[in-house]
């Protein structure tokens, strides 16, 4: 469905996908605390914007649990680092591993949150648009999987209900009876799927499937706006990568925690990174502002 999409989601799928690869990739590869913190805040803000408070309340506890787990896991099992704070069951707990654990936890939090918004923004047809051009066959396969998997689940439910109607319940009776009925449902599913696949293949053949030179159609168009957004994001990503590779931003955790001193240049890079992470939110807010002003002018 494409109702009520925010401004960022209406960009061409390749740009949206590129953005997600950028933010997730940089967060995973460069464990710099500032980079991670900015990424985390950006992701959280965008999820808030997309799903609202009620949405956040629903999924944030899970993300937080993962983060706490990562933060605790690392110092307990990773004993590298010079600064030993204390011993736990004869194992040293080091400052470095705690800091590394915190960074990892931020990273996991940021990545999870980006995926939450990714799930909402990159619908299956957008995913297909990105990969369909590269591998048309794959794009069709993927689309068919998306069509048939949910159908199989629905059909399994129908079969279970039908079986119950003549006195075979998958959900009651002895353990053995339930297992038998469960496997019956599976067996019926299989036959049903194979039987109906004949129809599907007829329908595909009738519409010329298998002729050479198949193209992959996508409903999305690459507009001026997408080019502008793509170029901007690409430029920003280049800046961040070059800066990190050149050592403008550097973070070492082992053997001793070490960040390079703040410089104007490093703050500039962080600012660029912040802009990249905030792009979805900024685009959304800007468009809302436009709407408000339009309404005022009415």
């Amino acid at each position: 469905m494409r109702n009520n999409e925010d401004a960022f989601s209406t960009l061409h799928p390749t740009v949206v996908f590129g953005h997600f690869v950028t933010v997730v990739g940089v967060s995973v590869v460069f464990l710099h605390p500032l980079i991670l913190a900015v990424s985390f805040v950006g992701a959280l803000a965008y999820v808030c914007y997309l799903k609202g408070w009620s949405g956040i309340r629903k999924m944030f506890p899970g993300v937080l649990a993962m983060m706490v787990f990562a933060a605790l896991f690392n110092p307990i099992f990773n004993h590298r680092g010079m600064t030993i704070l204390c011993y736990w069951y004869d194992n040293p707990i080091t400052l470095e591993s705690i800091l590394y654990g915190l960074a990892a936890s931020l990273m996991i939090g940021a990545v999870l949150l980006w995926f939450v918004s990714y799930n909402q923004v990159m619908t299956s047809d957008k995913f297909l648009c990105v990969f369909g051009r590269m591998i048309p066959a794959l794009s069709l396969t993927f689309s068919m999987v998306l069509r048939f998997l949910p159908r199989y689940f629905v059909q399994a439910k129908h079969i279970a209900a039908a079986q119950r109607g003549i006195g075979r319940d998958v959900f009651s009776g002895s353990w053995y009876a339930r297992a038998r009925h469960g496997s019956a449902v599976f067996s019926i599913m299989l036959t049903w799927a194979l039987e109906n696949a004949v129809d599907t293949s007829d329908s595909m053949l009738a519409r010329g499937y298998g002729l050479p030179g198949r193209t992959a159609y996508t409903d999305f168009r690459f507009r001026q706006r997408d080019l502008a957004a793509g170029v901007t994001l690409g430029g920003g990503l280049l800046v961040v990568i070059v800066a990190i590779v050149a050592g403008v931003l550097r973070a070492n955790y082992f053997p001793i925690f070490d960040l390079n001193a703040a410089s104007y240049l490093s703050w500039l890079v962080i600012a660029v990174w912040g802009l990249i992470c905030a792009t979805p939110l900024i685009m959304g807010l800007r468009e809302e502002a436009v709407w408000r002003s339009l309404r005022l002018n009415l």
Partner: peptide, 26 residues
């Protein structure tokens, strides 16, 4: 059977399916 004939998961994609097979351009 209406269900068995539909190959893809989106309405627009289904509409385009035959044309894709014939290798027609975007």
């Amino acid at each position: 059977n209406p269900d068995n004939q539909i190959v893809t998961d989106k309405v627009w994609h289904e509409l385009a399916f035959g044309l894709e097979s014939l290798g027609i351009e975007q």
